[in-house]
Computed example of a mutant assay.
Amino acid sequence: MAPVLLGLLLGACGREDVGTEVAIPAKPMRIMSTNMCTDLLLLMLVPRDRIASVTFLAHDAVEVIMPGADRGVAINHGTAEEVVAQQPDLILASPWSTPVMRQLAASTGAPLVEIDSAASFADIRRVTRQMGDLVGEPARAEALVAEMDRKLADLAANPPAQIRRVVVWEGDGNLTGSGTLTDEIIRAAGANNIAGNFPAARHATYSMEELLQARPDAILQGESRFNPPSLRESAGDHRLIRTAFKGRRITYPAALHACGLPQAADAARQLRAEIARVPSGPAPW
């Protein structure tokens, strides 16, 4: 590591005033995002020439949600060197950002704002408006929220003729229950999330045998390009699951469920369309 950068890091870690608040420009022109979810929302809110960088994870999610939106935008890996080199006038981070990142931001005079994750459509409205205010684009943020609400209202006004029972099952036995964005998306789609009926549990577990016994009309499985192949995915593609749920497995873009984005309403619309194609009647086993 270069001596100057090492000095900056040591100085940042030893400063007593690292908690000092730094003024945020009314319209930041060099915005650095260090979290995939803020990457995506940032790309929706501001033109690319005002973005210093987004994370290396952004591209695959962008290609699913808004292809080409990150073209020409630099990437970062959330390192101290990149903060120094890119000299951002606003850093967007998650509540889990490393202490060194926060300390270095304070040392270099770059304001760092932690953006909460979203577990509901109400959270999406709040986070989108917060980001819009931070980057100087409140009107754009309101437009995104209004479009999301229009789509949700349309879904609510035209419920499906039949409420289908579904469950998110990835192969590792973990279920996504109430209090999650995925549960809200399933409900907005007009379906019944089996795990959402469990008592006060965001996440529960289900073995393959319990899954078959529950006889959901369909199982949902997140699809992510940025995660490497895993044993969990192999279990989710077990021969028994393929056979029992033939025509009843629905994949969805994981980023739309993991990140609180206005496009979560699109995820609900897509899910309703996919569920409508599931064969009627109980699963044939």
Score class of each variant (00 low, 15 high):
Pro3Ser: 11
Val4Trp: 06
Leu9Val: 07
Leu10Asp: 14
Cys13Ala: 13
Cys13Ile: 13
Glu16Lys: 11
Gly19Val: 11
Glu21Asp: 08
Pro28Gln: 02
Met29Gln: 10
Asn35Phe: 07
Leu42Ala: 02
Leu43Ile: 02
Met44Gln: 15
Leu57Met: 07
Leu57Val: 10
His59Asp: 07
Asp60Gly: 08
Ala61Ser: 14
Val62Met: 02
Gly72Trp: 01
Ala74Leu: 11
Val84Leu: 10
Pro95His: 01
Pro99Cys: 09
Ala110Asp: 05
Asp116Val: 03
Asp123Cys: 01
Arg125Val: 13
Val127Gly: 04
Arg129Met: 08
Met131Phe: 07
Gly132Glu: 06
Leu134Tyr: 03
Gly136Pro: 06
Arg140Ile: 05
Glu142Thr: 09
Ala143Arg: 14
Val145Ser: 03
Glu147Thr: 13
Asp149Thr: 03
Arg150Tyr: 09
Ala153Gly: 13
Ala156Lys: 06
Ala156Pro: 04
Ala156Asn: 08
Asn158Gln: 10
Ala161Glu: 12
Ala161Ser: 12
Val168Asn: 06
Asp172Ile: 00
Asn174Gly: 12
Thr180Gln: 05
Thr182Trp: 07
Glu184Asp: 11
Glu184Gln: 08
Ile186Asn: 01
Gly190Lys: 00
Asn193Ser: 05
Asn197Thr: 14
Arg202His: 11
Tyr206Trp: 07
Glu210Ala: 12
Leu211Met: 01
Arg215Ile: 10
Ala218Met: 01
Ala218Gln: 00
Gln221Cys: 13
Gln221Leu: 05
Glu223Ser: 15
Ser224Glu: 09
Arg225Ala: 15
Ser230Lys: 05
Ser230Asp: 09
Glu233Arg: 08
His238Met: 05
Leu240His: 14
Ile241Tyr: 01
Ala244Val: 14
Ala244Met: 10
Lys246Asn: 13
Gly247His: 04
Tyr252Thr: 03
Pro253Glu: 07
Leu256Val: 01
Leu261Tyr: 01
Gln270Thr: 14
Arg272Ile: 04
Ala273Met: 05
Glu274Ala: 15
Val278Ser: 04
Pro282Ile: 07
Pro284Tyr: 07
Pro284Leu: 11
